[in-house]
Write a protein that binds this DNA or RNA. Structure first.
Lengths: 191, 191
DNA sequence: AATGGCTCTTGACAAATGTCAAGAAATAAA
DNA sequence: TTTATTTCTTGACATTTGTCAAGAGCCATT
């Protein structure tokens, strides 16, 4: 099984080798240089990618600040769901934090998967439902935890990220300023 | 078109009257008294309902506090997605804030819709994707707004809720204490 | 090694939000 | 209506988090 097939299998639960192979044929390899944009707010997003290596930051520039929504790393998929599924203008700007290797599929090929694999729509549904549940959890952390608790919770589950990306982005994605993040960090390292 | 058919049509985009009718046949009417539990954390959730009248609160009791995740009102659907789709133990407790009338479908009947309507899985996918996008927005409010801004944003879009449910629940669902909520409220009414 | 540009840390202070306790107001129960 | 219960508001104060400004550390380029 190729790495791509492994991702598809684990995210969508596709089991048949021939199906996996057929699906993976639709993807093409693509690379981004550090700083390149995968997507910009307001533009069309007609692709979905799996990250083979590197990291991407999903964010939005508002009037007064830049809000990082998520950082996607190896093994994750990346797209603007509203853009990809509903052909709406992209909500997020997505930029490479490092050189990035991707497996990318475009919308028209993606649609073909549904025609090829009868169960695809259901697998996709289950996939998006899992994503929904993850967001539910994330909202819950904001309703129930302090900045420090969110820091610890995220750190426990994403230790490796802390020495790979600028910390200010992690701070933003946890809903706090870089200064607060830095102080909590100091406290956790010393205490 | 019945009220139920209207909901199904607007949420799932089912267009054919005969399909709508077939789907709506699977639903049964159900009522809850104020205070009754639609679902309790940890139990199985094998039903999904549309709210014909009344309000339900979706929340979770933690060690030290009760966190309201959402309040569902007329026209909305209600379920524990992880429980309903993945047959996982329910994450949320769902309780009637008032007497409630529901249209309810159970999981086994729900599955039958998929067999009846070829496009169902796709419509469902789109439906859940829309829910996902709504949660993305909600997370964004927590990353980018103060308590006061979240209050105003929510108030503008849900004025009617403010004189229908205990405000402490709205406070919790916006991620602030009842006291903070009350002070912001005063400020907005006076200023 | 020196330069420049980011990024992170720190301090001092300000603002926002939480906590606790009391009482007022609203709602439900009798 | 009266009483009881819950919910909301308010004040005083504590804590958390944000803001601003300066400087330290780090990294890449020269």
């Amino acid at each position: 099984m190729t790495e791509l097939e492994h991702y598809i299998s684990s995210y969508f639960g596709v089991a048949q080798p021939e199906d996996l192979n057929a699906i993976s044929q639709f993807f093409r390899q693509e690379t981004l240089k550090k700083g390149d944009f995968f997507l910009e707010t307001g533009k069309g997003c007609n692709k979905l990618s799996f990250i083979q290596s590197g990291m991407l930051r999903i964010y939005l520039q508002t009037e007064d600040k830049e809000v990082t929504q998520w950082i996607s790393t190896k093994g994750y998929f990346v797209t603007d769901l509203a853009g990809f599924v509903f052909e709406a203008p992209a909500r997020w700007t997505i930029q490479a934090l490092s050189d990035v290797e991707l497996f990318t599929i475009n919308r028209s090929d993606y649609v073909k998967i549904g025609q090829l694999i009868p169960k695809w729509n259901e697998l996709e549904k289950l996939f998006i439902a899992r994503c929904f549940v993850i967001l539910e959890d994330r909202i819950f952390t904001h309703l129930s935890m302090t900045a420090e608790e969110r820091y610890n919770f995220f750190f426990e589950n994403n230790k490796e990220l802390f020495n790979q990306v600028p910390l200010q982005y992690i701070a933003s994605m946890l809903g706090m300023t870089p200064e607060t993040f830095s102080r909590i960090r100091k406290k956790q390292l010393n205490g």
